[in-house]
Design a protein around this nucleic acid. Structure first.
Lengths: 121, 121
DNA sequence: TTTATAGTTAACCATGTAGTTAACTGTAAT
DNA sequence: ATTACAGTTAACTACATGGTTAACTATAAA
């Protein structure tokens, strides 16, 4: 078997793969908000929206504090840092590891508009 | 409606949410490999494995060159950079934007082992 | 005390995803 | 010419996900 650890990268990236949830995160990065306020701009039912919040909560990306009948949600950056770090480490590793063949392939793909050996459109 | 653009962040993060696919990416960051070689360490059928490769391919994260009966896969860093940049921008924005309330909440959550107002476990 | 507001829960539906096995194509080796 | 090997395609299964509506709880306002 391979050396991947499950930690919660699965969860974090999965959370981030939904545009609604990314939008929520971006919104919350501007400050805490109530559920209703956050939900407003989205074209979906409130239950649908709060499901997304639950997903964010379960992944540890947001928390809330309750004030009367309101729930004020705020961002929890640590979970996101996990994902950010994974990608940054990968990127820097990758950038140091390019073989000349790979550099060649990358180059020819970026300069010409297509390459016989490049089957990705 | 909200200002999210769909581009391919959905796809890229969704790709990254699977541990097999992250492992493939890490493996390929060490250099190109054939399908069989990559698949070896994984406890799944070859068709299951090549589906993951297709997913990576469709998201533009890998390409291959064909040599005889072999397909040599290699990494395409641009797609990953997309995701990395999104997260880095978010992170830096977020770090500049903390309100004092949020700072307080974060602090009390990191120092004590739990907080009355923090409903995330 | 009745009504409005914020948010949740439950039951349901449609679609997508990750895996399986079996059968196939194409290239290389005997 | 036959066999072996690398990889794909197809048909199927099980389960997760993202949405819906309807009915509910709890707090606040009239």
């Amino acid at each position: 078997m391979v050396n991947y650890k499950k930690h919660n990268l699965d969860q974090v990236f999965s959370v981030l793969s939904d545009p609604t949830r990314r939008a929520i995160i971006q919104e919350l990065s501007r400050g805490e908000k109530t559920v209703k306020k956050m939900a407003e701009p989205f074209d979906m039912s409130l239950p649908a929206f709060t499901k997304h919040l639950k997903v964010l909560e379960n992944a540890g990306l947001v928390s809330y504090r309750k004030v009367g009948k309101y729930k004020y949600y705020y961002l929890h950056p640590k979970g996101i840092d996990y994902a950010t770090n994974w990608l940054n480490e990968l990127s820097s590793y990758w950038k140091g590891q390019l073989t000349s063949l790979e550099k060649y392939l990358l180059d020819s793909e970026e300069n010409k508009g297509g390459n016989k050996n490049d089957h990705n459109e």
